[in-house]
Design a protein around this nucleic acid. Structure first.
Lengths: 138, 138
DNA sequence: TTATGTGCAAAACATTTGCAGGAGT
DNA sequence: ACTCCTGCAAATGTTTTGCACATAA
């Protein structure tokens, strides 16, 4: 595992990263805690929060501040977009090309130094589309 | 004030909406509470939360779930983008054209029914650019 | 008049932090 | 050894909620 300088390679960090890499579901800190606890039952929730935060700061993982009350985490650090189901709150990746040219459009109309952007789509996931059709029948 | 059906026009709602419309700073619920309290000292924080939520549901205002811990609110409901200062956390509008064509790009690669999108830029605001230059000298 | 809304306070969540003991380098 | 890290629990911060009273329609 490639870590940042000044970060020790602890069992806890290793397993948090392994478990996060296993899924594509963008889990919340608490969901990561549940996943990790199956292998490290005595780990503290604070440790999970501390390490997710540290890894996100170090660019090892991505912290998503998308809709909903909790932050979500993603082991894929390459820039990509997300979609959130308005009905069930699930978050999925959107595998489209990153639209870097829009940074220039923003730079043209803003006095900020533009660092980057993130797009969050909203929609209805396949499962929820099906549930909606079912309930429309009744 | 045009409200949704089944919503009474109360003094509290009126003033919350007026105060929100006065600013372009995308205040948090607590900041709205502080603003409103100057005119209605006995209003409860719960009332502010309840009404901001209701108005956002009804499309009278916009609820922003951008980076940072707290939700922010915006009296401008026309679709537009935002930029958040990575240094101080301030949120500003980005007055560029809405890129509706990217919804189609997302629809092409996703099995979600796309409803819309929001772009959040990140950058360094003008004030923070100046502070950074000052501290670079020392 | 009556359904809805309000203030207040407590509860429910989500996240952060202090500290004494533990572990990586 | 000497830091840095962890588990635990308490603290903090944000949002929601229950309830008795108030008020818009």
């Amino acid at each position: 595992m490639e870590q940042l300088p000044n970060m020790r390679l602890t069992t806890q960090r290793q397993i948090i990263l392994e478990e996060l890499a296993k899924v594509t579901s963008h889990p919340t800190a608490n969901e990561v805690y549940d996943m990790v606890r199956k292998r490290l039952p005595r780990i503290g929730l604070g440790t999970v929060y501390r390490n997710l935060e540290l890894m996100a700061d170090g660019g090892v993982i991505l912290k998503l501040e998308v809709g909903g009350t909790q932050k979500r985490f993603d082991a894929t650090v390459e820039p990509h977009y997300h979609i959130r189901c308005s009905s069930c709150g699930k978050v999925d990746d959107v595998h489209m090309k990153v639209q870097d040219q829009i940074n220039q459009l923003a730079a043209n109309v803003s006095n900020y130094e533009i660092l980057g952007h993130h797009i969050e789509f909203s929609g209805i996931c396949h499962d929820c589309q099906i549930s909606q059709k079912k309930s429309a029948i009744n």
